[in-house]
Design a binder for these strands. Structure first.
Length: 271
DNA sequence: AGTGCGGCCTGTCCGC
DNA sequence: TGCGGACAGGCCGCAC
């Protein structure tokens, strides 16, 4: 599923190909995504071009002169570039057709994603405005995490997955980063020391960076008719590995549920 | 203000 | 083999 590294890989995969192409049409086959795909896309986008493909958390921000197309891939969404005469498949819900013979195609079996339009600065959009700092920004550091975690009673894992705390950390990378920094995911966020939160911060940046680097090998797939839509094999240490040996101590990895989500951890290495 | 949870969907897997 | 049901997942928006 598209976590932040896949979204960033998607951004890098499509940006160099679509910048400056003129949009010819928008085809909406299935508007019922998480929120309805606005019909106005059909009138507002044609004749324009994307000037920048940005990202905030897991949201892609495709800017034009008059506004921004906000895209979220949900759990199962993908974007790829195909020829404008390419046969569409099941779950190919939206096409942005360019005059130059290319088509940006949104595919999403589970329809948890969204395509929205805002004429304003997307940073002021309600979905984006309340988001915490980007994991790679200077604002995201051990001191910030420590200060924000004070007096928080929730688990550190729920805290990390709260987009108001930090942008774009989902279940998989919360599990991974907590393993890499040796923190028990069930521990109360407010009771963790400054130095351990600094280690967590470093682990988050490291694990995301590694995944993005791996994704780089799949960039060509974004303009490949037959290729997969840009997901890539993630090398995970702990997620979905219940019963398998911990990579550090070899004791079996455990699974539990915290805040309605699957949580994987090593009872020996994570405290 | 902080926290937990329901709901949106479909593909996959399991047991009968 | 077919079928139903549980489950997974991001994350908004509501309720407490």
């Amino acid at each position: 599923m598209p976590e932040l590294p896949e979204v960033e890989t998607t951004r890098r995969g499509i940006e160099p190909h679509i910048l400056k192409l003129v949009i010819k049409a928008v085809v909406i086959r299935q508007p019922r995504l998480r929120w309805p795909v606005p019909d106005s896309l059909k009138t507002v986008l044609p004749g324009q071009r994307f000037t920048e493909v940005g990202r905030r958390g897991k949201y892609l921000l495709l800017r034009t002169r008059t506004g921004t197309l906000i895209i979220h891939l949900g759990m199962s969404g993908s974007l790829r570039l195909v020829g404008d005469n390419s046969q569409f498949c099941k779950h190919d819900h939206v096409d942005i057709v360019f005059a130059e013979g290319l088509c940006l195609r949104y595919h999403d079996p589970r329809r948890f994603g969204c395509l929205l339009w805002t004429p304003d600065d997307p940073n002021n959009h309600s979905l984006i405005a309340s988001m915490g700092p980007e994991p790679f920004s200077d604002d995201f550091n051990g001191e910030y995490l420590y200060k924000t975690a004070r007096n928080r009673g929730s688990s550190i894992k729920a805290f990390l997955m709260d987009s108001r705390v930090v942008a774009g950390i989902g279940n998989i990378y919360a599990n991974e980063a907590l393993f890499l920094s040796g923190i028990d995911p069930r521990r109360r966020a407010g009771k963790i020391s400054r130095s351990r939160l600094q280690a967590l911060c470093t682990a988050i940046e490291g694990v995301l960076e590694n995944s993005i680097r791996q994704g780089g090998t799949t960039l060509r797939d974004f303009v490949n008719e037959s290729g997969q839509p840009g997901y890539f094999q993630q090398t995970l240490s702990i997620y979905n590995k219940e019963g398998q040996p911990c990579p550090r101590c070899r004791l079996p990895i455990r699974k539990c549920r915290t805040n309605q989500r699957s949580t994987f951890y090593c009872g020996h290495c994570q405290r």
